[in-house]
Every structure is written in structure tokens, then in C-alpha cells.
């Protein structure tokens, strides 16, 4: 059953990643990219790596793909023009692709992991069944508490920095005065 699902999901991944490159409309490309991410997340669930699949959904679809959509809508990129140089890069790109394929093939053929066998990432510690998320949470909030907090501070600094560098008072910028807005009478 799993192997059957695996083939369905991976076919969707391959087809939609081809469509990411081939579709004419950049918005469609991003939507297909989201489909690729989503199906990859399903693949991770097959491997019992539910934490990775959640992260993939949240980070890649929730943040990265939405950012891509924003960028495409903000910038006026002419994809058709860019595509004209596609054939020029084809020989080099196919060479690199071939090399990567060989490397992957070598690694997979050399590895002792049996793919047909169901990989199990989960651990049975004592009688309690622990999943990935629980294990990571247990370590992250106790042993590596300091690192977790420090990452939080780094994110705070990044946020403050972005605001500090971009927020400036310009004359003529339209702004809503909340107080006036609330006190406005209905007409």
C-alpha cells in the first residue's frame, strides 16, 4: 500500500516540478512549486519524519512560497524574455544535471538502506512511544534551552533592524489616524 502511494506522490512531484519550469505564467510556476512542497511533505510522513514534514509545510509553503508570490507580483518580470536564453544554457545545465544524477545514483546504489523496508525514525524508549516532535521538543526546551532563547533574540534583532532601516517619516505619506477614524461620524 505504502509503495503504491509512494509512486503516486512521486509522480506528482516529478510532473509538477517539470511544470514549474515549463509553465508560461510565473504565478502558475509558484503554485506548482507549492504542490511540489506539499507532496514532498507527504513523502516525509511515509518516513515517519512528521516533524520535518510540518516544518516543510510551515516554512516553505507558509513563508517562502508566499514570499515568491509577493516578489512576482511586486516586480514586473518578463518571463518570456528570460526564457529565450533557455537554449543557450541547456548544454551546461544538462551536463551538471547528469553529474548530479550520477552522484545520486552512486550514493543510492552504495547505501545499505533497503528502500522497500519501512524506515523507522521513531524510537521506542521504555514503554512510552515517542515521536520525533516530542523528542526534539524534550531536548530543545531543556538541554538546549540557551540556544533556543538566543535564536529568539537574534530574530528580535533582525525584526527591529528591518523596521529601523526601512521605516522613515516622509512628508506626504498617507497614514490613517486611528483616533480620528474611530470618532468619525456616520453620514
Amino acid at each position: 500500500m505504502t509503495i503504491f502511494l509512494f509512486f503516486i506522490v512521486s509522480t506528482v512531484i516529478v510532473v509538477s516540478s517539470l511544470l514549474v519550469i515549463l509553465s508560461k505564467n510565473p504565478i502558475h510556476s509558484v503554485l506548482f512549486l507549492i504542490l511540489v512542497f506539499f507532496n514532498t511533505a507527504i513523502l516525509f510522513i511515509f518516513l515517519n519524519a512528521e516533524f520535518l514534514s510540518m516544518i516543510l509545510l510551515i516554512v516553505y509553503i507558509g513563508a517562502v512560497a508566499v514570499l515568491f508570490l509577493f516578489v512576482i507580483m511586486m516586480l514586473d518580470i518578463n518571463v518570456a524574455k528570460l526564457r529565450k536564453s533557455f537554449l543557450n544554457y541547456l548544454p551546461l545545465a544538462s551536463l551538471i544535471g547528469f553529474i548530479i544524477f550520477l552522484e545520486l545514483f552512486y550514493v543510492v546504489s552504495q547505501s545499505k538502506l533497503d528502500i522497500a523496508d519501512e524506515a523507522s525514525v521513531s524510537l521506542n524508549i521504555g514503554d512510552k512511544f515517542l515521536n520525533n516532535t516530542k523528542i526534539i521538543g524534550n531536548i530543545l526546551y531543556t538541554d538546549y534551552f540557551l540556544l533556543f532563547q538566543l535564536s529568539g533574540i537574534i530574530l528580535l534583532v533582525a525584526m527591529i533592524g528591518a523596521i529601523l532601516l526601512t521605516l522613515r517619516k516622509r512628508s506626504g505619506a498617507k497614514k490613517q489616524n486611528i483616533h480620528d477614524q474611530i470618532l468619525r461620524k456616520n453620514k
Binding site: 538566543l150 534583532v157 529601523l164
Partner: peptide, 23 residues
């Protein structure tokens, strides 16, 4: 090496912003 990396990043991100402080 983990705490070292986070310390270094915290320091350098603050410095990037300070370098561009005069907007």
C-alpha cells in the same frame, strides 16, 4: 560550536544594522 555560532550571528547581525544606521 552551536553556542559559538549563535553568539557570532547575534553580534554580526547587530553590526550590519549599525553600519547602515545613518539611513
Amino acid at each position: 560550536i552551536l553556542s559559538m555560532y549563535l553568539g557570532l550571528e547575534l553580534q554580526s547581525i547587530c553590526l550590519y544594522i549599525l553600519a547602515a544606521y545613518k539611513t
